[in-house]
Simulated scan of single mutants.
Amino acid sequence: MYMCGDHITFELSMKQLMSVDPGEWSRNLMKEYMLMIEGFFSIPIALFSPTYRKAIKARGKVVDALSLVVRERRRESEKGGERKNDMLAALLAGDGGVGFSDEEIVDFLVSLLVAGYETTSTSMTLAVKFLTETPLALAQLKDEHDEIRARKGEVEALEWEDYKSMPFTHCVVNETLRIANIIGGVFRRAMTDVTIKDYTIPKGWKVFASLRAVHLNPEYFKDARTFNPWRWQSNSGEINTANVFTPFGGGPRRCPGYELAKVELAVFLHHLVTRLSWVPAEEDKLVFFPTTRMQKRYPIIIQHQEKPASKV
């Protein structure tokens, strides 16, 4: 079993953004979308890069397909049709009475697809890898979630109070994001001359802030390349990491979905460790270029956990 299912992730995104059910239309759109994504890591000169040429052409097809949906939904909205509970409905309604053009909405939808595609699911995969290689952490995580499940029964859904009662889970999530941050860094432009130590960044210059370099810096994190979720416990003796742990960026451009991503990771881990056991199907390798991922997507063999026999 592969932890990251490309088509599942994409179709879930389309459902949330535009209420589009899985089907032939979304599968065809995904093929073009994947060609567009491949162009992100190619030479941005169409003459020398067939991948880049294909990506530009594919983006045009993605935009055309999304534009058709946006126009149809706008017509339905103007006729007083039922409003759907998705991102597209919010964009069509506008912000404070100020509406967006179809072109602006499509551009925003494409940006959301790129920003959210496989980021959380890849983090889930990496969490499974790190836990598999750290049995003590996996055992402590399982104990925490077995206790929650025993308290709630077999079928009762998790609630916000349950999420807040997962201290070690939060440590596991933070440590996963620290070691294998999906976004390696962010670009920023200096709005004025900035002096840092003995260096001056002139106004107008663009800077690449490497989040990964900070997260793996032993000056801030002891044994920085070792998966150690206990470092996030308050009594661990680690330094205050408030200003050096930024997996979702910071400031006004901080990822708006950061809290949701952490909740999704916690809920995923809850169901994983309380219902399943697993072993790696084959050897795999963590790579950081062009993005953080497992080379083979970390295939695993899973088994449903047997429920303990009832006491008589």
Rank of each mutant, 00 (worst) to 15 (best):
C4G: 01
K285H: 00
P247K: 02
K84H: 05
Q16R: 08
P202Q: 11
D198P: 06
C171Q: 05
G80T: 07
M3I: 15
V279P: 00
I8D: 14
H215W: 08
T200R: 15
S123M: 12
S123N: 09
M1L: 13
D284G: 12
D146S: 06
V63Q: 02
G96K: 03
R212D: 00
T119D: 06
C171L: 07
L211Y: 14
Y199D: 13
Q295S: 07
F40A: 10
G96A: 10
F248H: 11
R53I: 01
T122W: 00
D143T: 13
A281C: 09
G204A: 07
F40D: 06
L141V: 11
D146H: 05
G251T: 04
E32A: 12
K206D: 10
D86N: 11
L66F: 05
A115Q: 13
A139S: 12
G60C: 12
V173T: 11
I183W: 00
P247W: 11
P308I: 07
G39K: 08
P44K: 06
F288D: 01
L126T: 12
W205G: 02
T291I: 11
M3V: 15
L126F: 04
P167M: 11
S19H: 08
A90C: 05
V172N: 05
G250A: 12
K296H: 14
Y199E: 14
M36E: 10
A90L: 10
L68K: 15
S77Q: 12
F10T: 15
Y52P: 06
T246Y: 04
E175K: 07
I301D: 04
V110Q: 05
I301L: 06
V98I: 07
S49D: 07
L286V: 10
L92E: 01
S77E: 06
G39T: 04
R297I: 15
V263L: 12
R188F: 12
E147V: 04
Y2V: 15
L88V: 08
F130Y: 06
K296C: 09
E282G: 08
E147A: 15
F268I: 10
D86G: 03
F41Q: 05
F187Q: 10
D143K: 14
F100K: 00
T125L: 09
E154Q: 09
I105S: 06
M3R: 03
T195H: 06
T125E: 14
P167W: 06
A157V: 05
T120D: 01
R59M: 08
V114I: 15
E156R: 14
S42R: 00
S210N: 11
K164E: 15
A213Q: 11
V214R: 04
V173K: 02
L138D: 01
G204Q: 02
P218T: 14
E103V: 13
A139V: 12
E82W: 00
G237W: 04
C4W: 02
F288Q: 03
L260R: 07
S67T: 13
I239C: 08
K15M: 12
V214C: 13
A213S: 15
A65Q: 12
L109R: 05
A150S: 11
N28C: 10
H270L: 00
T192I: 13
L216I: 04
